[in-house]
């Protein structure tokens, strides 16, 4: 093993489980295939916070966000992130690290401000999403799940993490060729897509590992046929069930964006 990384899962019991913890083991597996030794730690109280290269925070359930903000505030997370540690914040985790978020009653609260986004209320949307391939991040079409009643508004000039072929995403209507989803700002990756996201999308695990090791050149190709097949079947199923998204996806981006309104 050429180098070692620490991946810390932060306060998983504060939110509703959505199989997000499989993300840590996905980083271990993908890391091993990339000759990186990855160690995982679970942090569930502020004084057991550790210096890590990657922090995972997430799960669904807005009921836990206040507790999550409080717990995270008393850690060195902000300092570690400004030093370049990677933070992957999922759903309730994204609320917690946003500049501001709304609770189910509609009241606005301050978040940690690690992601330049503000969260607003929106109608509920649930479903399986498919992302568009993104050459700039070396990502193929990925699969994920969304279930939230929130709009995620990025600060001007801040990029989204994904553009969606199928799915509602941030609901900001500002992307070309599909909905914007999540946020990518420095070493912070924020998304509403929960579940075993990195397990099902190893290329996203690669992106996290590359950022954590400050690697700029692309990783050598690495096939994972079993996962690719599972994802291909799932994406095909989503496309079958969303015929509208499918015909839109065949149009040039700007036309599709206009039709979406």
């Amino acid at each position: 093993m050429s180098s070692a990384l620490t991946v810390a899962t932060l306060f998983p019991l504060a939110t509703v489980a959505a199989a997000d913890e499989a993300n840590a083991s996905a980083l271990v597996r993908r890391g091993a295939a990339r000759d990186l030794s990855v160690e995982t730690v679970t942090v569930d109280r502020a004084d057991s916070f550790v210096d890590a290269d990657v922090y995972l925070v997430g799960g669904t359930g807005r009921g836990g966000v206040a507790a999550l903000v409080e717990a995270l505030t008393s850690t060195d997370l902000a300092a570690r992130v400004s030093d370049g540690a990677v933070l992957l914040a999922v759903d309730a985790g994204l609320d917690a690290i946003a500049r501001s978020w709304v609770d189910p009653s509609g009241a606005r609260h301050q978040g940690l401000g690690l992601a330049p986004v503000d969260i607003h209320a929106a109608p509920e949307v649930t479903g399986t999403v498919v992302t568009r391939p993104d050459a700039s991040l070396d990502l193929p079409a990925l699969i994920g799940w969304e279930a939230n009643d929130l709009r995620t508004v990025r600060e001007d000039g801040v990029r989204a993490l994904f553009t969606l072929e199928v799915g509602a995403g941030n609901r900001t209507d500002d992307a070309v060729g599909g909905a914007a989803e999540g946020v990518l700002a420095g070493s912070v990756l924020g998304t509403r897509l929960h579940g075993p996201l990195l397990a099902l999308n190893p290329e996203l695990a690669d992106l996290v590992l590359a950022r954590a090791t400050h690697r700029s050149e692309p990783w050598p190709a690495l096939e994972s046929p079993a996962i690719e097949r599972a994802r291909r079947e799932r994406i095909a199923e989503v496309r079958r069930e969303s015929p509208k998204a499918d015909w839109r996806s065949r149009l040039p981006g700007p036309v599709a964006a206009r039709l979406r309104r």
């Binding site: 019991l13 504060a14 509703v16 489980a17 009921g63 836990g64 507790a67």
Partner: peptide, 12 residues
């Protein structure tokens, strides 16, 4: 243990 379908955290 945590329930995955209901939207209630284990803590609560």
């Amino acid at each position: 243990s945590r329930e995955y379908t209901r939207g209630v955290s284990l803590k609560s």
